[in-house]
Each structure stands twice: as C-alpha cells, then as structure tokens.
Design a protein around this nucleic acid. Structure first.
Length: 589
RNA sequence: GCGCCCAUAGCUCAGCUGGAUAGAGCAACGGUUUUCUAAACCGUCGGUCUCAGGUUCGAAUCCUGAUGGGCGUACCA
C-alpha cells in the first residue's frame, strides 16, 4: 500500500502546498459497511487544506483517482476518504505475491535467536502451567524461524536442589525399591508421587512438633525429614557416591517421562542445559562486578547490587557463605549461552511471577557492560487458573499434562464418532486424527490468548471443537484438501488468469495479502495469539467463500482454475500459520 | 507500605502506532443439506468498554487518580 501513501503525500504537496511524511498519514482497511477497500483518515489534513473534512477528502480523492492507476473510485463520508481499488489490482496481487511458493515466510535475516522454554524441575510431572510454557516457547521459536531467524531452542533443566532431594528421601524411606517398571508408573509420575509423600509426612512431623509446644516456624525448621533433605543436598554437593547414584537413577526416570510428554506435545529442543552443571557459574561475574564497582560487599561477606536509583531494591547476588543464589546462576548461564552461540537475541519463556527477577537480571548485565544484554527478553506469561483458583501441586489441584492430553484425545474421538467422520479410516489414521484434533483444540485454546494475560481453564468443561477453535481451522484445511483432490489440482498446473473476482474472492485475497504483516507483528510482540487470531479470520473467510461460490462447478474453466489456486494458497497459508502454533492439520477429517 | 500486570456482551476472548455505529466464538432462539465434508454457512438477541477526571476535531486505546483482582518485594528457585 506504499504507493497510495506516496501518492497521498504528493497530493498534499500539490494541493495544499505542504510537505508531510508518509508516517503521518494513516491507512486502514475500509469497514465492511462502507464501500471501498482502503481508507485514508483526512482529519489531520484539514489544517493544511483549510477546508472542512468532506471537501478535503473530495479534492484528495479526485487527485488520487487521476494519479494512481490502481484506484478505481472513491467516496467521502465525514472525514473518511474511502478508495476502491480496481479488480485488476487485486488480481495482480494474487498472482504476483500471494500465489508464490515462498509466500508466508521470510528469507534468512542472518540473525540468531535463542528461545529458552520448558525448563522443568525434575521432582514432579508436567502440569497445565508447563503446557502453556512449552506451547508458547515452541510457537515463538517457529514464528521467529518464519521471520528469517536462525533459532536455537534451549531447555534449562532444574535437576538439582532441595526439591529433588525431597523426592529422593521419600523414595528411600517409603519406596521399597519401587521403580517405573515394577509400578507401571511413568517415571516423572513416580518421582512426583514421592514428592507428595514427602510433603505429607513432613506436615505430620510439623504437627507432632507443634503439639510438643514448638511454633510453626520452629517445627518447619526442626522436622527430621527436612533436615535429612538438607543433609542430602549437602552430600550431593560433596559428591557423595550413594546420593549421586540415587539422584542419577531418579532423574533418569523423570527424563524418560518428560521425553514422552514432550513428544506428545510435539515440542523439541536443540540444546539442553542442566543446573547441576551451571549452578556454580556466575561467581566469576560477581568478582567482576565487585572489581567494576557495580556490586558491593557487606560486612558479613554477602555481595549486593544497589538498584534503588532505578526504583528497585538492593538485591543479593552472592550469599555470605559464598554460595550462589538464583540470580548468580542466571548471570552465569546468560553468559554461557552468549559465549556458546553469540545470539542476537535470547528469550526466556518464564511465568510472570518472575518479572522482577528478570528485570534485575537484565539490568545487572547492562550495568556490567554486556552489549548483548539489549537483546535479552523475558517472555512473561500469566498463570493458568482453575475456577477454584490457582493450581497447587501439593494440594492435588493441578491438571496433569499427560492426563489432559489423554482426555483431549478421548474427546476428539467422541466428537468424531458422533459426527460419523472417520468411520472408514484405517485404524492408524484414526488414532492419529484423534491426536491431531485433540491437541489442536488444546493448543489453540491456550495460544489464542495474549501471553501476558492469565488464562482460565475449567476441567469440567471440555475444550470446544466448534467456532473459534483449533478443530474449526483444521476442518477448513481438510475441506480445502478435499476439494483440491476432487478437482485434480496440481500445484504446477498453469491456469489462465482471471479478469475479475467476486466480493468474497477479493476479501480473501486481501486477507491473504496481510499474512506477512501479521507474521512480522507476531515476531515483534513474541505473540502466537496474533497468528492464532489471524488464521481464524482467514479460515472463517474461506468458509464463507466456500459456501458462496462453487469451485468445481464454476461457470468457466478459467474461474474454476482460479478458485482452485485460491483454495490452494489459502490451505498453504493455514498450514504454515498452524505450524507456527505447533498445530498439525489433517488431510481429511 | 512500595513495585509490576490485568479489567471490553451472561461466559471465553479480539480490538494494530488514538479514527466511522466497539467485534468474534460459546450459550439462547430461528433458518440453510437432491449441489465441492453441516466440526460449516446465514440471521436474531446481547455493551454505561470497572469508575472519575484530563489531553484531542476525535479515547476501549494516551495521561492522572480511584476501585476490584493477580503477582512480586527471600542469604527459595
């Protein structure tokens, strides 16, 4: 649309003798209820024209119709100049830009970005909150790829610490040697089971101590179980053979379980980091900060940074005993990642309860003079809430990821059966279809919402399969594939170009033409929701077209060819957009 | 206390750097299938955009304040 802007700038210069920039003009799509394709808001120009908005719009419209070949006509309503572009213009857009093999992705921009997501703790299985994280991270990575970035997907596994020691202690004490094999439990669930047992027994001990007259605080500190866990953590740090062996064994179970869940979710990683390897790093950065005077040491030996000038607080970066805190590690891993990849951007997909942490982290790196800190971004997302409130692992109110996936598949099967859709499909295709549709519904449900907003999930109400949903879009795709097959469409067939298009066809072309702009917007905002809402509009519009125009029984061969091509391009764009959301589309459903 | 985020239809959400009468889906009600897949299409119903000021020709959008909700403010991660 740059040519219209440019002509409008010329018009203002010629008619009103004023130089304006193209940015000062706003072009928008004409609203449905008015005639036209593109609208220029003329209010801002009245101060140059010294005329009322209607007159200003009219002279501008006349100038543009005469000067710009593509503009067919115009009308002015209040301060809005609506321009209608010629059919031939839109047809040209279709053949020249939309109907091209690489439409819907950008060539390499030579830049590298790391997206860190998932980053689970190894003491319990994944739940719905993790699912949102995984889907967001994967999707953002795909969106950036489509925008021309080279992407490294990273997973920083929190495999050490007091939490895993809790599971280990509980397993040793109450496990009787139970293994995933002996129990038939998935490894992560088995370990999670002992995490819950630890908490239960721990609470019992606290109660007992309180009955003996200790305060809540004392009891929490003095309960034998927590002491044992702390001792175990120390032994782990000292490299105690027995503890390390147990730790390795249980972590292996968890990894096997996670792998399974990741596979079902369809997410993957190029690079794993383990905190057991990185938890000591960052201390050298603390040294450096002290030397540079960015940090200061208190009398007890602890190291701090004063961020009060920035409106934040004083923040501890190293404990008095010289051990790391969370942010120490993160300083180290940020540096480690940069040293390894020299990425232009690095994104951390982490929940919004850590907003403050990342604010501080990035600020510290900037103060230390890391130029690459400018490219760091915390993709913060809201919690997933249940109608009853927040999910709590220990209270058993979490929605387990594996259970949820299984339920989604079951619902997909139920829906498919009710509609009698896949009755003649081979068994394998059926199973695959249930998975694709079930995951499509779930993923779309989670991704269509702006990341920073919190999300409400009601386990008692199944995720919809109709309307603004993943399956609706998948269905649209399958339907197109079906028409293309019936029409014997081949992507390399050459068709005679059409001379004219109908209103819906034009709308479809306009919608398709905007795909790259939405792609860019999604990347700038790190927002899969932008893609999700775009592809929904596209699918909706296609269904309207499908309903209004006959494709295979078009009045002319030329028109049939065009409609097939239009359908093909729509299908490709839907597929590409859905891929960016990590959602598969079935060939039939 | 201080800081950050959120508030749009009964419910779940869109609404781009301010622009026309604020849009979808679900739910409710009605219609469309001898025609390319009805997980679809079309229509009806539904709004003081939390409230109060301000900026502007124009505010759901920007600014200030208030209210309600969430999160953070650990020598936890």
């Amino acid at each position: 649309m740059d040519f219209i802007l440019e002509a409008a700038v010329r018009a203002v210069k010629t008619l009103f003798a004023t130089d304006i920039s193209a940015e000062s003009l706003s072009l928008q799509q004409t609203r449905k209820e008015f005639e036209g394709d593109i609208t220029i808001v003329v209010f801002p120009l009245t101060k140059f024209s010294q005329k009322p908005p209607e007159q200003t719009g009219t002279v501008l419209g006349e100038f543009l119709v005469n000067e710009v070949e593509a503009i067919e006509s115009f009308n002015v309503i209040k301060g809005f100049l609506n321009l209608s572009l010629k059919n031939s213009y839109w047809i040209n857009v279709f053949y020249q830009t939309i109907n091209q093999p690489d439409f819907g992705s950008f060539p390499s921009n030579g830049k590298k970005v790391m997206v860190e997501y998932s980053s689970p703790n190894t003491n319990k299985p994944l739940h719905l909150g993790h699912v949102r994280n995984n889907l967001l991270g994967y999707s953002v990575a795909e969106i950036l790829k489509a925008n021309g970035y080279e992407v490294i997907k990273a997973n920083l596994v929190n495999d050490r610490g007091i939490h895993i020691c809790k599971s280990m202690i509980a397993w040793e004490k109450f496990g009787n040697g139970e293994t995933p094999e002996s129990s038939g439990l998935k490894g992560d669930h088995l370990v999670g089971k002992y995490y819950v047992i630890f908490d239960k027994e721990y609470k019992k001990q606290i109660e007992a101590l309180k009955n003996q007259g200790e305060t809540e605080e004392q009891a929490k500190k003095n309960a034998p179980l927590i002491k044992e866990a702390q001792e175990m953590l120390q032994k782990w740090e000292q490299g105690d053979e027995h503890v390390i062996a147990l730790w390795k064994k249980m972590n292996c179970w968890v990894y096997a379980g996670f792998e399974e869940t990741y596979k079902k979710l369809g997410v993957d990683f190029d690079q794993y980091y383990y905190e057991s390897n990185t938890y000591l790093s960052g201390k050298d950065i603390v040294e450096e900060g002290l030397e540079k005077g960015v940090f200061f040491k208190k009398a007890d030996g602890s190291v701090w940074i004063d961020l009060t000038a920035e409106g934040l607080d004083e923040k501890l970066v190293l404990r008095a005993d010289g051990t790391s805190v969370y942010i120490t590690q993160d300083l180290g891993t940020a540096q480690l990642k940069y040293n390894q990849y020299h990425a232009d951007k690095a994104i951390n997909v982490v929940g919004n309860e850590q907003d403050y942490h990342f604010k501080v982290l990035f600020l510290i790196l900037k103060k230390l003079g890391r130029s690459w800190a400018e490219g760091l971004y915390h993709l913060s997302y809201g919690m997933v809430d249940l109608p009853s409130g927040k999910m709590k692992s220990r209270e058993g109110t979490v929605v387990d990821a594996d259970d949820l996936i299984a339920e989604m598949e079951a619902t997909a099967k139920g829906q498919t059966d009710i509609l009698g859709k896949a009755t003649d499909f081979p068994e394998e295709e059926k199973q695959n279809l249930y998975h694709i549709i079930g995951m499509g519904a779930l993923k779309y449900f989670l991704l269509k919402v702006e990341p920073k907003k919190r999300l409400l999930f009601d386990p008692n109400e199944s995720v919809d399969f109709q309307g603004h949903t993943g399956p609706f879009i998948q269905y649209t795709y399958a339907r197109i594939r079906s028409v293309l097959n019936k029409g014997g469409f081949k992507s390399d067939t050459v068709f005679m170009p059409v001379k004219t298009v109908s209103a819906v066809e034009k709308d479809l072309i306009i919608q398709l033409e905007q795909f790259p702009a939405f792609l860019t917007e999604a990347a700038i905002n790190y927002s899969p929701a932008v893609i999700a809402n775009y592809v929904y509009e596209l699918a909706k519009l296609y269904n309207k077209f499908y309903h209004e125009e006959s494709i295979l029984k078009a009045e002319e061969e030329m028109v049939k060819g065009f409609r097939l091509q239009l359908s093909y391009v729509a299908a490709n764009s839907i597929k590409k957009a859905m891929q960016m959301l990590g959602i598969e589309v079935p060939e039939r459903m």
